[in-house]
Design a protein around this nucleic acid. Structure first.
Lengths: 90, 90
DNA sequence: ACAACACTTAGACAATTGTATAAATGTCTG
DNA sequence: CAGACATTTATACAATTGTCTAAGTGTTGT
């Protein structure tokens, strides 16, 4: 498991971004307008999420659309389940 | 989901400690001797893990025994599965 | 080519964090 | 109770991080 992955998840703004993306894919601007911080700061967070491979991007004209990389989340769930969680949960 | 939880998981030393505890419960000293950093530093990490409720402690004479709190890991797995992971994984 | 728009990158700064050493707390045994 | 042992807490400091403003890159339309 990559260190960058856990570091990326450590920030609440980034987790909020991931939750927004779990609803549907969104452009950088659509994401940024949801937060009280500067667009550039959100862009920085998006870069961190991308560096951790938690999201992927696709250019759409002027826009850049972000989407969740569900594969990484599956690996994460597997990591926690196999190592730390007891086997008998509902 | 608590912010402290994700912050606690962000450090590689702390994740290593959790992996050690997933094998079996251990005292602070048994954990500390596995790392190249000062005992006090490991103790600090243990405090962070405890603050995030990822571990629990029990005094045993002079020793303090640490154990994994598997409940929190189960909640974590559920958080990731319901929000982020697609449903059709093996 | 130019201007407007969408977004990222660079540079600076304050806040947080990981580590160290030193001091403190708690427990056991003679 | 004194001394040894196990561990935590206090304090300090360098490294990392989140945020900002300003500048840069890429795309569209005139």
């Amino acid at each position: 498991m990559e260190d960058s992955l856990f570091r990326a998840l450590a920030d609440p703004t980034r987790r909020k971004i991931l939750e927004l993306l779990s609803e549907k894919d969104r452009t950088a601007g659509e994401i940024a307008e949801r937060f009280p911080i500067a667009f550039a700061s959100v862009s920085h967070h998006l870069g961190v999420l991308k560096g951790a491979d938690l999201v992927a991007t696709e250019r759409e004209g002027q826009f850049i659309r972000y989407r969740l990389n569900t594969t990484v989340f599956q690996e994460l769930v597997r990591y926690f389940m196999t190592r730390f969680s007891e086997k008998n949960n509902a």
